[in-house]
Amino acid sequence: MTNNDLALIDEVIATLKRLRERVAKAAEPEPAPDVADADDDFAPGNLIELPVAAQRFEVSKDKLRRWCRDYGIGVLQGGRWMVSIPRIRRHIGR
C-alpha cells in the first residue's frame, strides 16, 4: 500500500462522513406546528382531501366527516371536506 492509497482512503472516509451528516440532517423531522397558531391549521399547505386523509390516517371516511363537523378538523371547500393535517394529528394523538 502506497502513500497515495492511504490518501485516497482518507479522502473517501472524509467524503462518507460528509454524506452521513447530510443524510442525517435531511432525516430530521420537521418541527411540529405550534398549537397556539391554530389559524394556520387551515392554510392551503396543511389541508388534504378527506379520502386522502382517511387512507393516510387509517380512519373511515364517515368517521372523518363526523370529526370535521363535530370537532372542526376540516373545512368545506366547494362541497368537499378538506382535512387539516395538524388538527387531525392533535385529535388522534400522533
Rank of each mutant, 00 (worst) to 15 (best):
E30N: 09
D62G: 14
M1K: 10
G93C: 03
L19Q: 11
I88K: 02
V12Y: 11
A54I: 02
I9V: 13
G74M: 00
D39Y: 06
D10A: 15
Y71I: 14
F57H: 02
V75F: 06
D10F: 12
P51N: 05
C68Y: 05
E28D: 09
I48C: 01
L64N: 01
L16G: 10
A27C: 08
D5V: 09
E58L: 10
L19Y: 08
P86N: 02
L8Y: 14
C68E: 00
I88L: 05
M82F: 08
L76D: 11
E21T: 11
P31F: 04
R90V: 06
D37Y: 00
V83N: 04
A32W: 06
E58G: 07
A7P: 06
R18N: 11
H91M: 15
I88R: 04
D10M: 15
D37E: 08
K61S: 12
V12T: 12
A14K: 13
V83H: 00
L64E: 04
P51C: 02
I73A: 05
K61W: 07
T15K: 14
A53M: 02
V59L: 09
N3I: 15
T15Q: 14
A7I: 12
A53D: 02
P29F: 04
A24G: 08
P31G: 05
R66I: 14
E30H: 10
V12E: 12
P31H: 06
L16R: 12
R89F: 04
A53H: 01
G93H: 00
L76C: 10
D41T: 05
T2C: 09
N4I: 14
T2A: 07
P86T: 04
N3W: 12
R65G: 14
A32G: 09
A38S: 11
E49Q: 09
D70F: 10
